[in-house]
């Protein structure tokens, strides 16, 4: 059952073996705080990469550098063969190919659920309203919210809002979706409905980078687990190896704290 990254790469569509994302020597500071220290990381096409680690370790920052919601001080990030553009239209175009799901959902509060999902396709991809709506309804159906399409975000539960956020990301037909702690702001009983949608995406071969504290998701859906602490990638491995046989003390210490309760 556990795939290694190498077998996965060869399995992906059109057989393109170059990584979809690669970070080379990435450094970032927030004032005196060195949040990303010499990060080297690649994400293969079709891979589900789960980033775990203690709070403040740089996981979210790492995730947000990939669509340049955070700038970097040093190093290079290459997406689909081209370095990330610095700003302007080129950057907007790149972002339209990278979906993002936030911890706090960030649905557009003044738009209906349908309006949230059709906005990107209509305004960025210039699709006709009808085409965008049809596709949006398919996606809302897929995440189980089609019957709420005319409501506003504030009328939905957290779990429902987060599923809409996933549909909004999918509507852009992204090459990669970034999940920045997608279940951390949810009531416990709503976590699973969001994870189920994410597991479905993973099975369908979507390339995903997921920052999470959900170890169950990491075990079930990840191809690779990256453990980050103090701004560094301490260890990366398949989930089975990582959870049963962590190589570093730092990772074993972290796992002992979260897996015992």
């Amino acid at each position: 059952m556990p795939f290694t990254c190498i077998t996965l790469t060869t399995m992906t569509e059109n057989g393109d073996a170059t990584p979809l994302v690669s970070l080379v020597g990435v450094n970032k500071h927030f004032g005196a705080l060195h949040v990303l220290k010499n990060i080297d990381l690649t994400v293969d096409r079709g891979e589900v990469l789960v980033v775990i680690g203690p709070s403040g370790g740089g996981k979210s920052t790492l995730c947000r550098t990939i669509n340049r919601l955070e700038t970097i001080d040093e190093g290079q990030i290459i997406f689909d063969g081209t370095p990330l553009p610095e700003e302007g239209r080129a950057l907007a175009r790149l972002r339209s190919e990278v979906g993002m799901v936030f911890q706090s959902f960030n649905l557009f509060a003044h738009k209906t659920i349908l309006g949230n999902v059709t906005l990107g396709p209509m305004k960025v991809r210039k699709k006709a309203r009808k085409e965008a709506s049809t596709r949006a309804m398919e996606l809302l159906d897929r995440v189980g919210i089609a019957n709420q399409a005319d409501k506003y975000p504030a009328q939905l539960s957290g779990g429902q809002q987060q599923r809409v956020a996933i549909a909004r990301a999918l509507a852009m037909d992204p090459k990669l979706i970034l999940f920045d702690e997608p279940t951390s702001a949810l009531d416990p009983e709503m976590v699973q409905e969001v994870l189920d949608v994410m597991i479905g995406l993973a099975r369908d071969g979507m390339t995903m980078v997921v920052v999470t504290h959900e170890m169950g998701f990491a075990r079930r859906a990840a191809n690779r687990v990256v453990f980050m602490a103090d701004g560094q990638i301490i260890e990366q491995n398949t989930p089975d190896e990582f959870f049963t046989n962590a190589r570093t003390d730092r990772a074993r210490d972290f796992l002992s704290k979260i897996l015992t309760h």
């Binding site: 669509n67 919601l69 239209r89 972002r95 979906g99 993002m100 936030f102 509060a109 960025v124």
Partner: peptide, 12 residues
């Protein structure tokens, strides 16, 4: 977060 979500779907 509204502005971040707007930028994240590729709006200028």
């Amino acid at each position: 977060g509204q502005a971040e979500a707007a930028r994240a779907i590729g709006l200028t």
